[in-house]
């Protein structure tokens, strides 16, 4: 097969694909609020997916996500996009049941490329224990891929973003910096080893993390994706009516990330996330600009940010290290609501 770099097919602007959280919130504000006795989690709290109760001990989680290429290889991209879409099920404490492909593909590109992307997606769904049911493909100038996913969870075990309690400890399971590294890779500013490290991190499922959350009776978590650590933490803090304190020096990072920010590799999405969340963040004067922008870096298929009861926190970190998340670490704690939702020290 021809060796095509998917990143070369992406819009030259390169300033990433997600609408700003602020714009989206405004646009959604006009929609009618959906109320239904079986709807357990709706869009009201900006959670990761919706949850619909079928019976007293069985609820469906439904979610979808798709985006343009975030890495060069087609098989890698398929896996990353699928892991990212499946992640919303895990962030809600569920298991994957079924998935369907969502594919937009350029007419003038070889179909082998499409097949490789789909193979990546299928392999990830299989790894997640899910069943791929089919999908839909249309043409578009820039390829885009993702999944619509159905998962299940016991209604008493749903993990949302709205029950964080002061005293809970915040644990992040994957290192930050995928947005910065992919941006650097596109511009040939980073070694392939570092790029591979970012791709491997994005490909990793949050499945084992979700299992550990259920063992530790965690009820509040989210996954860190396009709105960055600050954006997703902010949604969680607001939905839970609490504030969160972060220790900037504890943030787990992919190699080279701070060096790249120092060079000026700050993707447009980070500035957009900053615009959205900055007014709710209080940064201690000791935090330098590079660490600040790290909080706003958009992640693809990032880790879980979980609120864990303080007495279980160390056990949770240990279990995460054991189950394939060597970077998992305590990065802060939930505190009573303050004038700022996020306090970074």
């Amino acid at each position: 097969m021809q060796n095509i770099d998917l990143l070369k097919l992406v819009d030259q602007g390169g300033c990433s694909a997600k609408l700003s959280a602020e714009g989206l919130a405004q646009a959604l504000a006009g929609l009618p609020k959906i109320v239904h006795p079986n709807l357990l989690v709706d869009i009201e709290t900006h959670d990761d997916g919706g949850v619909y109760k079928l019976t007293d001990d069985y609820a469906l989680i439904q979610t979808t996500d798709f985006f343009p290429p975030v890495c060069s290889g087609a098989y890698d991209f398929g896996q990353v996009a699928a892991a990212n879409a499946l992640s919303d099920v895990y962030a809600m404490g569920g298991e994957v049941l079924t998935a369907m492909n969502l594919m937009l593909f350029p007419e003038d590109q070889p179909l082998e490329l499409l097949a490789e992307i789909l193979r990546g997606g299928h392999d990830k769904v299989a790894e997640a224990g899910g069943v791929m049911m089919g999908g839909h493909t249309i043409t578009d100038a820039i390829p885009k891929y993702g999944l619509a996913v159905t998962g299940f969870v016991h209604p008493d075990k749903i993990i949302t973003n709205s029950h964080a309690r002061p005293g809970d400890v915040l644990i992040l399971t994957k290192p930050l910096g995928t947005g910065i590294i992919i941006s650097a890779w596109k511009n040939q500013l980073v070694h392939e080893d570092i790029y591979r490290q970012a791709v491997e991190s994005m490909k990793q499922l949050n499945r084992a993390g979700a299992a550990i959350m259920q063992q530790m009776l965690v009820r509040t978590a989210t996954d860190i994706t396009g709105f960055g650590l600050a954006g997703h933490a902010l949604k969680m803090a607001q939905a839970s009516k609490v504030s969160m304190r972060f220790h900037a020096k504890q943030l787990p990072l992919l190699d080279e990330v701070l060096h790249l920010i120092e060079m000026g590799v700050i993707p447009g999405a980070a500035f957009r996330n900053k615009e959205f969340a900055d007014s709710q963040c209080h940064f201690d004067a000791s935090i330098d600009y590079n660490h600040k922008m790290l909080f706003f870096d958009a992640q693809t298929s990032g880790g879980l940010l979980m609120c864990v009861a303080a007495e279980k926190a160390n056990a949770a970190v240990k279990a995460l290290h054991r189950d394939g998340y060597p970077h998992a670490i305590i990065i802060g704690e939930v505190i009573d609501k303050q004038s700022h939702a996020l306090i970074i020290e």
Binding site: Q12, G13, G14, C15, S183, K186, N187, L189, M263, G264, V265, I266, P267, G268
Partner: peptide, 13 residues
């Protein structure tokens, strides 16, 4: 130049 090259070059300068 594609994002974030303008910023990188500004910062370097």
């Amino acid at each position: 130049k594609a994002c974030p090259m303008p910023l990188i070059e500004t910062k370097r300068a």
